[in-house]
Simulated assay, not measured.
Amino acid sequence: MREIIFDTETTGLDPATGDRMVEIGCIEMVNRVLTGATFHAYFNPERDMPVEAERVHGLSAQFLADKPLFRDRAEDLLAFLGDAPLVAHNAQFDFGFLNAELDACGYYRIGDDRMVDTLAIARRRHPGAKHSLDALCTRYGVDRSHRVLHGALLDAELLAQVYVELTGGRQIGLQLAVDNTVEQRSETAVFIPKLGEYRAPRPHAPSAEELARHRAFLETLQSPLWNS
């Protein structure tokens, strides 16, 4: 199954009050394995950058001034996302900004049915614990020593590793070898024989030696229930 792990950086907390998305980083996974395919872009927000937001991600208005507008990269982004489920940490936040930008450009919004929220998964799996991305990296031994500031692509890379751990660990990426006599019918590695395939009957009848050993064993039992 193809999934996209993504993260955004913004000018603030609420697109309804004029905040804009300034960076998006997306990583492709297939069957919980990174494929190496990514999408990353900075956007000119056409507004100032609040000091508080710049302290988080380090993206200044001057740095973003010559970057493309969201509408200039929207089609490329949507092509990369395709119809895959979208995985994000505190996904309502990222979906809110992504859909606000799509609305402004006249594109269809991305439905919540495609949303996978790792924050909600973490809360179910570790109730009462800390659920920030940093805390989950620490819990699962994901190296974040190179994370000085928030960055959309870097955070998506970290989240991809955390997501694998949250959903079963690294072993779920292993695949069973399959030959031409079977076909895979689900993500859970259930294999169904092809129709019309002939299989020789497997012997189930006990041998004469096994029957004799069984009779000898029965004779050693004291007052067996079936004689009551």
Rank of each mutant, 00 (worst) to 15 (best):
H40E: 12
V116F: 10
A104M: 11
D112R: 11
L34P: 07
A91D: 03
L78N: 01
R125E: 13
W226F: 13
K130A: 10
L119H: 05
L86T: 07
N180A: 15
N227M: 04
M29T: 02
L119N: 04
A100H: 15
E219I: 02
I24C: 08
T8K: 06
A122L: 07
A189Q: 15
R114F: 04
V190K: 09
W226C: 05
H131R: 13
T8E: 06
L154N: 03
S145D: 03
T188K: 07
L64Q: 05
A84S: 11
M1E: 06
G111L: 07
L158F: 14
T38C: 08
R215Q: 14
L78I: 00
R139V: 01
F80S: 06
S223C: 03
R199P: 01
Q222F: 11
I27T: 05
E23A: 03
D72H: 13
A120L: 14
A156Y: 08
Y163S: 01
R73I: 00
I172K: 09
L221G: 02
R215P: 03
T181M: 12
T35K: 14
L119Y: 06
R185F: 14
D76T: 00
L158C: 06
F6L: 11
L211G: 04
D83L: 10
G141E: 07
V33D: 01
G151A: 05
A205E: 10
L34D: 01
V30W: 07
E101A: 09
E52M: 14
I192W: 13
W226I: 03
A152R: 13
R32M: 15
G141Q: 14
L133E: 00
D179E: 08
V190D: 15
A156K: 12
M21Q: 06
A120K: 15
T35I: 03
K194S: 09
A53G: 13
E28A: 12
F80H: 08
F191N: 03
R47G: 07
M49S: 02
E197P: 01
E187P: 02
A53N: 13
A79H: 05
R47Y: 05
H131M: 07
H57C: 06
R125G: 11
F95N: 08
P50D: 11
D66S: 11
D134A: 07
R202M: 09
Y198M: 08
L59W: 09
G36Q: 06
A156D: 03
R109C: 05
G128P: 09
Q62K: 14
A104N: 12
R185A: 08
L34F: 12
F93R: 12
E101D: 05
L77K: 00
R123W: 10
D72K: 06
R109A: 08
I5N: 02
G25I: 08
A61Y: 04
A79K: 10
I24E: 10
L149W: 13
V87C: 06
E101I: 04
A16L: 12
G173E: 10
V148P: 02
R170A: 15
L77Q: 00
T220L: 15
R47P: 01
D143P: 11
K194W: 08
L69K: 15
G106H: 03
V162Y: 10
L69C: 08
L59I: 00
S60I: 00
T188M: 12
N44M: 08
P15T: 05
Q184Y: 07
E187G: 14
A189R: 13
R147W: 08
S228A: 12
G141P: 06
N90Y: 09
A84C: 09
D117S: 07
L102P: 04
L77E: 00
E3D: 04
T118K: 13
